[in-house]
Amino acid sequence: MMSEKMSFKAGYRSRTVFRLCNGVFMALIVLVVMIPLLKVLSDSLDKTTRYGINLWPQHFSIDAYKTIFTNKNLYTPFLISVLTTVVGTVLGLLITTFGAYVLNQPTLIGRKFFSKFIFITMIFNGGLVPTFLVLKGLGLTNTLGAVLLPASVNVFNMVLMRNFFSQIPNSLFESAEIDGCSPIRIFGQIVLPLSLPALASIGLFFAVQFWNEYFNYVMYITDTNLYNFQVKLRELVLNDQNMMDPSVVGFGNMVKNAAVIVAMLPFLFVYPFAQRYFISGVTLGAVKE
């Protein structure tokens, strides 16, 4: 839409200066963010344990990563993480889009009530013990359901999603309604395809939420075979940090740092994937047709 080249022609000069500043600024921010990450990466590849900031390994070794991907006690949690993240994200998106779509119907009787009904759960909660008792009553404790189901209702995401839906021009719905489309067809054929950026970003929110979860695992699940990678990682870090008892066997510093890296790894690829859907003008194109 805007053809701009690096040029110092009059009019473009200030823009070019801005571009340059922006570039330098971005590089600086990336650097600030990278340094701590590099430290962890370097420590994960370094056989000698050192104290302080070391951005390059002294005795290079990838043993720690080998351990993570060959040791059943470490790769099983990783697989659980992947599984719960995928299932949780799909489930979460389903619930969120359903809820957001209904809440976005301005004339629906009871909409205001529904909206408040949902919102209250963001503010008020019963606390640990009652939640535990309810999950136990539903037979969900000690199953992955305790981690997947409650967390897939997320008010924050639902309100954001409704917000995105509300930006879809009303004329689209009206014409579809006139054409006799059922709400579910409008939802599937108009709303969802037009909300790809929203689906991508909120899907990402869910994915991260399920990926980073540890509290619900620790509290509602006792079978350690069901623990995900974050729980394992936390154990590695905390047991090491507060080790009183020499016999709480740890994997050592290297594996700990490698685990921190591995916990981030999948999302190196997820964002570029999600970003493909951040295409501007989807909504508008549809209106023009």
Binding site: I95, V102, L133, P150
Partner: peptide, 18 residues
């Protein structure tokens, strides 16, 4: 469409609110 949302909200959020 709202039913699953409502059911899950009641189960996992309103029941514990007791």
């Amino acid at each position: 469409m709202f039913l699953p949302v409502a059911v899950m909200t009641i189960l996992f959020y309103y029941l514990p609110m007791v």
